[in-house]
């Protein structure tokens, strides 16, 4: 009896240390990676780097064009994907539960969230670039990334709405609220924390994507600042990809510096998402 107990305890401890080792391993690899990048790239982060156009000489090159490109993409993608995704999420969760079309759409959306991003690029190449004739423009890129993050936004909208307790809806109905008033004035505000979190995470995913944009042909050497949605563009991940494929050491240095900037953008967005989630959780206790 006693021996059996000890064996189980031993297994328990073993697993604990095994888990700890796995976690530490992951953290260690990540830290080495980060430290490496910081050592190589930090020195390159100066005003010249942020304010210069690409150039054939690494020390004269900068990220101005691709940083602006990424910001354009971020804003346009948000404008396109957020209203569409949130509206679809609301529809599926609140209105479309019972009919067959809705459940068909529902299954497909879950599947879409798992499709590799390059597939979206192929779809977009055909539809946006060729059929709609949008070329390799910012608009085509944003539409492509919108496709990619729509399922994420829809799913997180639905989760956020689902988390609003039934008692809140009932209270609104009982006071004479219509379905739309109940959604608009009670459900959405109560779900806004989760909703925003999902939206920010989705957009930060879009900012880091390169594969679908390469497929639609956004792998260009651009030297003019994009000023309209129809302009050609470059984005941070693609610029990084470009620089990394050059043999000169200076370009590798540029790439690592750009990686730091891109990481910073994603960290800030993720941090914001976490902050918003915590704030809402604290504010709303049912």
């Amino acid at each position: 009896m006693k021996q059996k107990f000890d064996i189980n305890r031993f297994k328990d401890n073993m697993f604990k240390y095994f888990g700890l080792a796995c976690t530490l391993f992951g953290l260690a690899v990540l830290s080495i990676f980060l430290i490496n990048i910081l050592i190589e790239g930090l020195g390159r982060l100066n005003w010249q780097f942020f304010s210069s156009l690409p150039s054939r000489m690494p020390e004269k090159s900068g990220i101005l064009i691709c940083l602006l490109g990424s910001i354009w993409i971020m804003v346009l993608t948000a404008i396109i994907a957020v209203p569409l995704g949130v509206a679809s999420g609301i529809f599926l969760e609140e209105y479309g539960k019972k009919n067959k079309i809705a459940s068909f759409i529902e299954i497909n959306i879950s599947n879409l969230a798992g499709v590799p991003s390059i597939i979206y690029g192929l779809l977009a190449l055909e539809i946006f670039v060729r059929i709609l004739g949008l070329g390799k423009s910012l608009l085509a890129g944003s539409l492509t990334l919108s496709l990619l993050i729509l399922p994420i936004i829809i799913v997180s909208t639905r989760e956020a709405i689902k988390a609003v307790p039934k008692s809140i809806r009932e209270a609104s109905y009982a006071l004479g609220g219509t379905k739309w008033q109940t959604i608009r004035f009670q459900v959405l505000p109560a779900a806004s924390g989760g909703l925003l979190t999902g939206v920010i995470l989705a957009i930060s995913r879009a900012v880091g994507e390169s594969a679908p944009l390469i497929v639609i042909g956004a792998l260009l050497y651009i030297t003019t600042i994009p000023t309209s949605p129809m302009d050609d563009f470059a984005v941070m991940p693609i610029q990084i990809f470009n620089w990394l494929s050059r043999p000169q050491k200076g370009f590798i240095e540029n790439a690592t510096a750009a990686i730091i900037v891109l990481l910073l953008i994603t960290f800030i967005m993720n941090g914001l998402a976490i902050y918003l989630r915590n704030r809402w959780q604290k504010k709303i206790k049912w």
Binding site: I168, E170, A171, L175, G176, G177, P189
Partner: peptide, 28 residues
């Protein structure tokens, strides 16, 4: 439902101010 009000078992105020809770039925 404006003529027939309802109070539930578990208090279910909206996660809003006291004022907004009272006026909700009128605002809508």
């Amino acid at each position: 439902r404006k003529r027939v009000g309802m109070v539930f078992q578990k208090p279910n105020p909206f996660p809003k101010s006291i004022y907004e809770n009272v006026v909700y039925g009128l605002r809508i």
